[in-house]
Design a protein around this nucleic acid. Structure first.
Ligand SMILES: [Mn+2]
Ligand SMILES: [Mn+2]
Ligand SMILES: [Zn+2]
Ligand SMILES: [Zn+2]
Lengths: 151, 151
DNA sequence: GATATAATTGAAAATAATTTTCACTTAGCG
DNA sequence: CGCTAAGTGAAAATTATTTTCAATTATATC
């Protein structure tokens, strides 16, 4: 059971090419604008809003439009590659999506995002089902704190 | 350790008067508009968006304005009495705030909200602190399912 | 490599959600 | 009762997002 882990440069490069391949597989064309959005978000260790992706993406592809950032996020989300992060201070930023049974550890200062596995909430879940009469399908678990860089 | 629990009519009445008292204590005036917003949200078993509060609130106080709904929510939030709920499908709805160490169980169908206690994530939290170098301050835990009514 | 064509683009316009402005009203104190 | 600062709703302004549209371009086919 591996602990939370900042993605290495290797891994983010793989993520970038994987997302590009997924877009192509689905029949979407690979354009400079889409490449820019993918590059920026796949290689970011922190969550980014559409406006931030736009800003950073223009460094890669200067004619990038904000509209295309929205449109590309929509497609990446549909492919299950990115998702919104929910935070107390706002939920309009995106991250590489959780894969399988994963949860988040978030830095309150810098927005850094880490992924972890290995929680076991099945007992609690069963207890709640019994007490409430709900059929439980899913859960979210997020920890908030300050990363070592920010301390 | 009590299980999750739909608030009784008694309890929601108390919540309503408690919120009104808190607003008054803080020096805010008690108006028909504020009363309407408080009534609607304090007595609701489901999360409500500002527009829904506005709509329901007009049944209580017909000249209520949407602006005042926003302004009242802002004050109730500042007093720690209400908070936004975060859901996969959107985070613009409000609920009576969690009190102390509580978490949510949400119905995916009807929006019903239940509160529970008694999770223990301290071991997991310590493990993550050790592995990540973060100092963890807080966590969110939410279960999603279908309530007994909706099944 | 050239060509055809449907997908994609960015700018501008439209829409939706929220906030601000403002002239009028009123809750709550004396 | 009055006084007055706080609060109101309508309308305007702002912000985030989506839609429209004419021009461009990625890719399949030759
Ligand atoms: Mn889990
Ligand atoms: Mn907890
Ligand atoms: Zn940090
Ligand atoms: Zn339900």
């Amino acid at each position: 059971m591996a602990g939370p882990h900042i993605s290495s440069e290797e891994e983010t490069k793989e993520r970038t090419s994987g997302w590009i391949a997924s877009l192509a597989d689905r029949g979407y064309r690979i354009t400079g604008s889409r490449r820019a959005v993918v590059d920026v978000l796949a290689e970011s260790g922190t969550s980014l809003s559409p406006a931030e992706i736009y800003e950073q993406g223009r460094a890669v592809h200067k004619q990038l439009g904000l509209v295309t950032v929205y449109r590309t996020l929509e497609k990446l989300e549909e492919l299950g590659l990115v998702q919104r992060v929910h935070r107390p201070d706002g939920c309009h930023a995106y991250i590489p999506a959780l894969r399988g049974h994963e949860h988040l550890l978030l830095c309150e200062q810098c927005g850094r995002v880490e992924y972890f596995r290995g929680d076991d909430l099945s007992e609690l879940s069963r207890r709640l089902e019994g007490e409430s009469g709900y059929t439980i399908h899913d859960h979210w678990l997020q920890f908030f704190g300050v990363c070592s860089q920010c301390q």
